[in-house]
Amino acid sequence: MPAATTVFTAVDTQDFDAFAAMLADESTFVFGNQEPFVGIEAILAGNAAFFTAVQRTEHHINRVWTVGPTTLAETDVTYTRLDGKEVTLPALSTWDVDEAGLITSYQVFADLTPVFAP
């Protein structure tokens, strides 16, 4: 089971190979109320597209709970916009893993409206 620090380091450094290595083949990824990405290729494409809209992210972990195959991570995420302005917002990320410890479903609960506000 990947630790929260491992997951968020891969995201924040945009290390898509490391992130992909944590995913089961038919995993799903949902950000907010967007349509789910299904499968590693779609998840990586969605994450790569997101990073064309912001320069970077930095997750600050507040609390992590792991119960059986499920992890919940409460974070404050600093988004660096394309104009260089930083916006920090709360988020909750959850993921489930299979018997091999690979992520089968990943969901992020966050409102990014302030990140893209003028």
Rank of each mutant, 00 (worst) to 15 (best):
T6A: 12
P36T: 00
N47W: 07
F8V: 00
F50R: 10
A4W: 03
T9S: 12
L23F: 02
A24W: 00
F109L: 10
A45G: 03
A91E: 12
V11G: 01
V87E: 10
G84C: 06
A45S: 05
A49P: 00
S105M: 02
D15Q: 05
V64M: 08
L44K: 05
A53W: 08
W95Q: 02
T52R: 03
V108Q: 10
A4C: 07
A3H: 11
A48E: 15
M22L: 09
M22W: 03
Y79P: 12
P114C: 00
I61S: 10
T66I: 09
G32V: 03
K85M: 11
V64N: 06
E74K: 11
A18K: 04
D25R: 14
F31N: 14
S27Q: 07
D25S: 14
D15W: 04
G46Y: 07
H60T: 14
F16L: 04
Y79Q: 03
G68W: 08
Q14V: 01
D17T: 15
V67W: 13
T88A: 03
G84Y: 01
A91T: 03
S93E: 12
P2M: 08
Q14N: 00
A45M: 09
A91C: 04
R63D: 09
N47K: 00
T66V: 13
T6F: 06
A42N: 05
G84T: 03
P69N: 13
G46L: 01
L72G: 11
F16Q: 04
A10T: 05
L44W: 06
L72F: 13
R56M: 11
T9H: 10
A3K: 13
T80K: 00
E35N: 14
E26W: 01
E41I: 04
P90C: 08
F8C: 01
Y106V: 05
T13G: 01
P118W: 08
Q107K: 14
T94R: 09
E35L: 14
T57D: 12
T88E: 14
F116I: 04
Q34M: 12
I61L: 11
I61H: 06
I43P: 02
T9Q: 11
F37Q: 13
H59W: 11
G32C: 08
E86T: 07
A10Y: 06
A21H: 07
V67K: 13
E74D: 08
N33T: 15
T28H: 06
A53E: 14
L92Q: 01
S105D: 13
L112G: 10
T113R: 15
T70L: 15
S93A: 14
I103P: 02
T113Q: 12
I103Q: 05
T70V: 15
N62K: 14
A42Q: 10
T52D: 12
V108A: 15
E74W: 05
F31Q: 11
P114K: 03
A117N: 11
W65F: 13
T5C: 07
G101K: 05
T71D: 09
P118T: 07
T13C: 06
T94K: 04
T94C: 04
P90Y: 08
W65A: 15
D12E: 04
T9F: 05
I103S: 01
